[in-house]
């Protein structure tokens, strides 16, 4: 094994173990306050212009923030909070469109598009690989050699 191979094996081992440690060890637990903040970013302020509950400072956003905090303190699940807010303020409070009906398209279309793009590229590359490769003629080689010589002169 060359030194380079050893180096690559080491670097992969280090990176993978770091990633595993980071994923398994949860570190400091999130406080309720942090959890409430991150949830507040997932909901639209019902009366604002394109601001989330976390961003807005209008009274209703404050009320909802307070409610979210109370639910978090009570140990309610994210799904409970989501359902509760949607039933009070309507579907458009949820920044994460539901996967029912037509709104599922917003999730599906990019994935379908991504697969289509990968499939398309694979086909194109296959076709390119299948095409015959033209060999350079002696005249071509001479041209390149001349150009190289000229470049190396300056």
């Amino acid at each position: 094994m060359t030194r380079r191979t050893v180096s690559w094996i080491l670097v992969v081992v280090v990176a993978v173990s770091a990633l595993v440690i980071a994923a398994v060890d949860e570190g400091e637990p999130q406080t309720n306050s942090d959890r409430a903040y991150s949830l507040a970013k997932d909901f639209a302020c019902p009366v604002c212009q394109g601001q989330s509950i976390a961003e807005s400072d209008v009274p209703i956003a404050r009320t909802i923030r307070r409610n979210i905090r109370i639910w978090v303190d009570e140990g309610r699940s994210e799904a409970f909070i989501r359902d509760e807010l949607v039933s009070i303020y309507g579907e458009d409070i949820d920044y994460s469109p539901s996967t029912d009906g037509i709104s599922a398209l917003v999730w599906v279309l990019p994935i379908v598009g991504g697969f289509a793009a990968i499939a398309g590229l694979t086909i194109v590359f296959r076709r390119w690989q299948a095409e015959a490769v033209s060999e350079a003629t002696a005249a071509d080689e001479a041209l390149v050699a001349a150009a190289r010589r000229e470049r190396n002169d300056d």
């Binding site: 970013k41 639209a44 309507g90 458009d92 949820d94 920044y95 994460s96 469109p97 709104s103 917003v106």
Partner: peptide
């Protein structure tokens, strides 16, 4: 009426 935001 739906909203698409942060989490999406």
């Amino acid at each position: 009426t739906i909203s698409v935001g942060n989490p999406y």
